[in-house]
Simulated assay, not measured.
Amino acid sequence: MRIICYLLALLLLVCPVKLAAQETIIASVSPEFPNGLHAKYLRFLAKELNVALKIKPIPLARRIKELEKGDIDIIVLAKRDNPELIALMPSYSQIDENLFVRASEKHRISNQEQLRSALIGVSHGSHLPQFVGNRELANTVEVNSLEQKVLMLKRKRIDGFFHTFSSANLVINEMGASDAIVSSVWQPGRKKRLSHFVISKKSRLFKYKAQLEQIIQQAKNEGKFIQIRQQHYQSKN
Rank of each mutant, 00 (worst) to 15 (best):
R2M: 13
Y6H: 07
L7G: 04
L10C: 11
L13D: 05
L13Y: 04
C15P: 01
C15A: 14
P16I: 01
V17F: 11
V17Q: 07
K18G: 12
K18D: 05
Q22H: 05
T24K: 15
P31I: 12
E32D: 01
P34V: 09
L37P: 11
H38I: 02
Y41L: 11
L42F: 03
L42S: 08
L45I: 07
E48S: 14
L49N: 09
K54S: 14
I55M: 09
P57C: 05
L60T: 02
R63A: 15
I64K: 14
E66K: 14
E68L: 10
D73E: 10
D73R: 03
E84Y: 12
M89N: 15
M89A: 15
D96P: 02
E97K: 01
E97F: 10
R102F: 08
S104E: 13
E105Y: 09
I109H: 12
Q114E: 09
Q114I: 03
R116D: 14
A118W: 06
V122H: 07
H124W: 14
L128P: 02
P129E: 03
Q130W: 12
G133K: 01
R135Q: 06
V143C: 07
N144R: 00
N144L: 03
N144V: 00
E147W: 09
K149C: 06
K149H: 13
L151N: 06
K156S: 09
I158Y: 13
F161I: 08
S167M: 08
S184F: 12
Q187H: 02
P188I: 06
P188D: 06
K192Y: 05
S195M: 15
I199V: 02
S200T: 07
K201S: 08
L205E: 03
K209A: 05
I215A: 00
I215H: 01
N221D: 15
N221S: 15
N221V: 04
G223V: 07
I226D: 07
I228H: 13
R229S: 14
H232C: 09
Q234K: 00
Q234A: 03
